[in-house]
Computed example of a mutant assay.
Amino acid sequence: MSSMRTRLALSVTLAVLLSQAAAAADLDNSYVQAPYPQPTTFDWSGAYIGGHAGVASSHLNPFSNGKGLAAGAQAGYNFQFGSAVLGAELEGTYMGGTDQNVRGGNLDEQWRLAAKAKAGMSLDKTLVYGTAGYTRTKFENGSNVRRGPGWEGGYLVGGGVEQAFGNGLSAKLEYNYVMTPDVKTTTNVGTTRTDIDSHVIKAGINLRF
């Protein structure tokens, strides 16, 4: 009888120890380590100002004859919706006397103003975008031009890529194609109307605030 009581006591003791061990294991497994904080993605929203410089030409090859050195400033505002970025930009550029041929003579592009819309995709700190807008270009008379057009309206399309850095700074590379239609000039051979094409490749820096 005493042997049976001893075995019963040992069984009860073993059962209690096993239940305590299981409870301890449950408590240990119930602890869930807090996840690491996820890095925040870059936000392109907000206003910015900046400057740009590049090469303008009447040919797609920016290093062909008749090119001018373009330089100017821009200001704009971006809105970001998820990875989509929409914005608007105003730009003023000195065109450096880019040469444009017309019948019987040539014109020089001196200044350009542009109002542009932008749409792109954010890849965190990299923004890839397209742009389109309206331009006003100031032409000066070149060789054999007796009467030039002055300021003429045109259209712009293009695209670029912008890379953000710290302290609100970003750098961009952009291409613009500008078409100024029906430009009226009077030369030694008479009065003509010409569609003038301009290609601009420029690099720039923006400061967001």
Rank of each mutant, 00 (worst) to 15 (best):
G66E: 10
R146D: 15
A117N: 07
G92L: 09
V161D: 05
L156C: 05
A56M: 06
I49D: 08
D99Y: 01
F63K: 09
G51D: 13
V55F: 10
T126K: 01
N101R: 13
V128S: 04
K67D: 12
G105Y: 06
A53Y: 06
R146N: 14
V85S: 05
S58G: 15
V145R: 02
G72R: 10
E140Q: 14
G150W: 05
P149C: 09
L113S: 06
A115N: 13
N144T: 06
G87S: 02
M95C: 01
D99L: 10
G82P: 03
Q110I: 03
G68M: 13
V128E: 02
A75P: 12
G148A: 10
I49W: 10
A115W: 09
L113Y: 13
H52E: 08
F81K: 08
G96Q: 00
G150C: 07
K67H: 15
E89P: 00
G158K: 12
W151S: 02
G82V: 01
H59Q: 05
R146F: 14
V102Y: 01
L113P: 00
A119E: 04
G130L: 15
R147M: 11
G153S: 15
G104T: 15
A53P: 09
K125L: 03
Y155N: 15
R146S: 14
T131S: 12
K118S: 02
F139K: 06
S64E: 04
S83G: 00
A71I: 13
G158D: 10
A115G: 15
P149R: 12
Y48T: 11
L107I: 08
A117E: 03
L90Q: 01
A73V: 15
T137A: 13
Y129E: 09
